[in-house]
């Protein structure tokens, strides 16, 4: 299971009032991410469970700087692939005269012979692809 920190959406956690209040900053992957409220609820529950002395947990949504797929940690990328979701490609070196699109690897069989079916999949942050080798469709976290 990928954590919010590994996904790069957890920006800050602060303890105030001598540890009675927690302030959390959360950023959405996409502006309209419908999972944001569920994430905020999970954070509140996790913090209250971890520390029963907490009287208040406030989760604030921040937009700036915008989330990027580069914010996903190495461990996060590994867990995405293990869950059958192709992680975003890494940022390339400084852009040369000819843009080269790196192949996207099938998370099931490892083949790089994959094709795009749709730029938008089950959620806005993923594209739908198909592996030409093992024929399985899979989600790919598209780069932003």
């Amino acid at each position: 299971m990928i954590s919010l920190a590994e996904l790069g959406v957890l920006r800050d956690v602060r303890l105030l009032d001598g540890g009675r209040t927690a302030e959390v900053e959360l950023t959405p992957t996409y502006t309209g991410c419908p999972a944001l409220e569920a994430m905020a609820e999970d954070i509140r529950r996790a913090l209250h469970t971890a520390d029963p002395r907490l009287a208040r947990v406030s989760v604030r949504t921040v937009l700036s700087p915008p989330w990027s797929t580069d914010d996903i940690t190495e461990e996060g990328r590994r867990k995405l692939a293990a869950a059958g979701i192709a992680p975003p490609r890494r940022p390339g070196p400084a852009r040369g005269p000819v843009p080269v699109a790196l192949a996207i690897r099938c998370p099931r069989c490892g083949s790089t012979d994959t094709e795009l079916i749709s730029r938008f999949s089950s959620t806005a942050c993923k594209a739908l692809r198909r592996c030409r080798t093992c024929r399985e469709p899979f989600d790919h976290v598209k780069e932003v």
Binding site: Y30, T31, G32, P34, R119, F120, S122, T123, A124
Partner: peptide
């Protein structure tokens, strides 16, 4: 799905 995703954004 694509139109719904754009709508959601």
């Amino acid at each position: 799905l694509a139109l719904a995703n754009i709508s959601l954004d």
